[in-house]
Each structure stands twice: as structure tokens, then as C-alpha cells.
Amino acid sequence: MLELRLVQGSLLKKVLEAIKELVTDANFDCSATGFSLQAMDSSHVALVALLLRSEGFEHYRCDRNLSMGMNLGNVSKMLRCAGSDDIITIKADDGSDTVTFMFESPNQDKIADFEMKLMDIDSEHLGIPDAEYQAIVRMPSGEFARICKDLSSIGDTVIISVTKEGVKFSTAGDIGTANIVCRQNKTVDKPEEATVIEMQEPVSLTFALRYLNSFTKATPLSETVSISLSSDLPVVVEYKIADMGYVRYYLAPKIEE
């Protein structure tokens, strides 16, 4: 028996909007520790890892580990029927081949049940080693989204370079080139507006902008984003979900052959 009750249902709505463009079908894994997902895009170049810890749910009952295969576009269609202030409960009976999303309005005067058939998805879990990164940039998530969007109108790849000057995003295309430098800036009145750069050593990597743009669909989840870079690893773009967990995206670099 699975019954997960999330008072801030809007988080789940935003999570689906954040991942459904990158991944079509995926397994949601439920265990005592939480509700998670790990899935690659069809080209196996990008991966999304979601974790919603059990403590973040008002009620979290998961009698035994469960993996539920779902089409994320269909889940998104159902969750769009939930109000942004609704309480969302995910329910599934042991051995049943369906999952139910229940939406309760804040004053309990409207209760909706959406039931969906589960799919069999053979998920290939990748082992993601914890790594020391040569540079970690924390910046406003809206700022990062704006940079990715603007640069993708000029070119389709971005070179992200971190030096002691700051973090530089560069691209080039038929019409010309663009360089955006963001300097460390801690003297802001709100911490979420700060740009903080932790650099062990300078690093510079090249990435496809279309994946970074799909990652920025997670912007509504968090005021800040962290970008972790290391010269021999995929970039990690992480949006923390307040008090619950995170949506993490990994993207393999493009390498000079």
C-alpha cells in the first residue's frame, strides 16, 4: 500500500513540468526514504534525478519498495487538473497496475480522483559517483534561465568557463558571437540574489544549449540554481526543492575530437 500526501501539491505540479520535456517514460521509485526518479533522455546525453524525501510529506506510507512506470506527459496532464493550492495524494495498492492522484482543495470542499494505468519500463539505473567539483556556481535561477535562452538565439553550444574573474558563458553562430560574464556578488540584500563562485581551479567545458534550456524548466522550483563543473565529468545543474529534496540534471560535455 502506498499513500503519499503532499500538502504543497504545487511542488509536484512544478516537478512534472520540469522533467516531462526531457524524459518521456520513467519509473518513480518509492521507498521508506522517499519518492525518487532517475532517467536519461532518449539520446543518453542528459539525465534527471529527482528526490522528494519522506519527511517532506504530511503523510508518507510506503509498505514496501515500489517502482511505478509512468508516461510523464500523461502524469503532467493529470496534475494540471490540480489547483496550485491543492493537497495532492499519490495512492497505489500493492499489486495494482494503476496509480491514483487525489486532489483536495484547501477547504476540502472539492475532492478529485485521477486514476492512471502504470507501464512496465525497464529502467537502467546509472551509478552516479559523488565527486569533488573544480568549480561550483550558485546564482539566481532566473538569471541562469535568461542566459541560456539569450545565448541559444545566437548559437547552439555554450562554453562555460570559471576563472577567478567569474563565470563566463560564450557562444558563437552564423550571426555572430556572445559572451556573458557573471561576477561573484555577495553584497545583495537577499541571499537568493547572490552569485557565489567556489573555484578549486579554473575550468572550461562545452555543452549543448538545448539541454540546458530544458533543464531551466525547473526554474519555478527554486530561486537559486547551482552549476557544478569538473573537466572530466558531466555538469550538474541542481534546483533544490525547499525542505524536501532536489531536481538534479546531468549533462555530458561536448569534447574536441
Binding site: 542528459a46 539525465l47 537502467e124 546509472l126 562545452t206 555530458a252 561536448k254 569534447i255 574536441e256 575530437e257
Partner: peptide
């Protein structure tokens, strides 16, 4: 030219 790498170059199946 820059060649897009695959994640399996860096992460291995569990």
C-alpha cells in the same frame, strides 16, 4: 569539431 559525449562514458550501469 566538438563531439557530444554520452553519459555512459562517465556513469556506469548499476
Amino acid at each position: 569539431a566538438c563531439k557530444q559525449q554520452k553519459l555512459s562514458t562517465y556513469f556506469h550501469h548499476q
